[in-house]
Design a protein around this nucleic acid. Structure first.
Lengths: 190, 190, 190, 190
DNA sequence: AATGAATGAGGATTCATTCAT
DNA sequence: GATGAATGAATCCTCATTCAT
């Protein structure tokens, strides 16, 4: 068998390919159940090639986590409820954007938002930011705002998994219903 | 250490001890990061003893998952919203019971409700049962009941982790606030 | 569970039982594929009981080998072709006796004559003794007596396994045919 | 020892080496007494390398058994007693070839013809084929052909072990004497 | 005489990682 | 840029054997 550089190969392309396959496999099988041999096999490359582009398995995984974290926090920080009257509409727009972000890379989201230790930390940060953004605009009287916020975060988390990733609902629908549930109650109990 | 039976040793005691340590370690470090050697070390026993009581690591883990599943579903099936007027109070009582169940064995809950593939399935079952119990009692007009239900489930999931296990809130408080958020809306947006 | 002496139990009985089960299992599965746990399970006893009667697994096995060896060599030494004319009939009687001995304990024979390193040595001894007993009575001219003897031994070995243990032939028949083949040739090749 | 590729190493070479060492060790010590660590030590390699070329110990062993079986049956099937007059000479030639085959790889023969469960099956197949080839050419009158055949097979088995592998006799001599014993009787009993 | 409970010692196997080409 | 070949470092698991009762 010939060794050496493959025809038509380019380092960047191989690296990207490995990353993509890694994201797919990690998201589906998790960190430990995904072997480096699996990743390179999926990319039609060999194990030493992996180490050409990544320090090791853990570092690749951490990179992915970090990548998600940054993109996610960007999205979260972009939430802007403004000073205006249209607070509710704005929030709905922001939620829509967030769901769209999740939907744009479900595999990476699964890794970064559901699979790791850091996921919890990330959700906590999300909660804190959301709390800060909402607490000036919403009257909670004697209710606990943190319970309220955590409920929303939990709802987002679950809906993303069960309705967004399964393509049962669109980002817009989810955001709309969410706003409805948490900010405009009109349920009637018989 | 000499071989053979230890003074004052009893099979049931050892098995229970191993199970307890396993629950603690699995819940803290996860399946793969918990080695059999860790479990037996924590129980002050040796590896062969582990195999005296469990077929292997996976089977022990599956047992724990099953144990949680059974207890959890028992709790869920016990949810009874009755035919009476006091639907809301009853639901609150049921949620309280559920949070109490989670709080009664946080380690096992972490394993069974957050850590495994089966966790997702379990939450889906939870959603379905909840949906069936609620849909006759709540008017959803044109809103999607599944989104509503999944929001509640997500909220329960998140609150258990962030407020119940951290002992920031009591089961009663969480249930009460939850009912408030989802069934008695009085938030005022400025 | 109650411990201690079983009702109706007697040390000798247990020892014999273990020995019998060991012979069966060793002969069927071989030394390594027979676990002490298998033996005691078959005897409906427990592992420590095994060590009450046998030093260890190897020593039990060696005992069995030795037992076979002694009984076998007794039989072999009993071969007596006499000084008389009826040499052939006598030999046939001796072979019959040998086959009967094999048939009387096929399990032990399997262990001692087919399964162990010592089996080979035993067959060599058999060959030597046979050679000594025959060489005075048979004229080999320029043929190699050792080849002749080894052929007989090989035939006995194989026939025991394929025709005696399977009960296809009786010891008498085998001995008779054997004598015929090796000492009274009348085959006609077309 | 440093990790990674050794100087001047080649996969085929290593695999063959491991196979050779395995044959030697298995034939000398048997399956259970030969550890993977022994094999790789003999090949001056490490355990993971073993798994580069073989699925596991059992599969390697089975491969060896199969390899012997195929080569052996090829030899057996090649036996051709023809329609001609020179039946006896032909048979002698065939036996010579068979002994030569055994002598060409005594280690593998020990494994495949003496050591395994499959050995017995193989000898039975040998017997059947031999029976078919001989029964048309030899008049057995009222003697049992199967006893006759099994005697020959047993003789071959034993002579291979005691006279061929020990280099006391050459294939030609053994075949010649064998033919003499079984097909041209001229022993004279005093 | 017999058993429940435990362990020492070792073997098979896996996997991330690295060297030589 | 890429690969073939190899290994260090675990981890799981088994089994004969032994101690306390």
């Amino acid at each position: 068998m010939p060794r050496g550089r493959k025809v038509n190969s380019s380092g960047e392309k191989s690296k990207k390919l490995l990353q993509e396959k890694a994201i797919e496999l990690f998201s589906q099988f998790g960190y430990h159940e995904t072997k480096i041999s699996d990743i390179v096999k999926a990319a039609n490359l060999t194990q030493p090639t992996f180490y050409l582009y990544f320090e090791n398995k853990e570092s690749l995984y951490n990179d992915l986590i970090l990548q998600f974290r940054n993109e996610f926090l960007e999205n979260v920080n972009r939430i802007n409820v403004g000073n205006e009257d249209n607070f509710i509409e704005k929030l709905q727009t922001n939620f829509t954007a967030l769901f769209k972000f999740f939907a744009s890379n479900p595999h990476l989201t699964k890794i970064g938002f559901y699979q790791t230790e850091e996921s919890e930390e990330l959700k906590n940060i999300f909660s804190q930011i959301l709390e800060e953004k909402l607490k000036e605009r919403v009257e909670f009287s004697d209710h606990d705002i943190r319970i309220f916020i955590n409920s929303i975060v939990g709802a987002i988390e679950r809906l993303t998994l069960t309705m967004l990733f399964t393509k049962e609902k669109e980002p817009e629908q989810l955001a709309s219903e969410l706003i409805n549930i948490y900010f405009a109650k009109e349920l009637i109990c018989r």
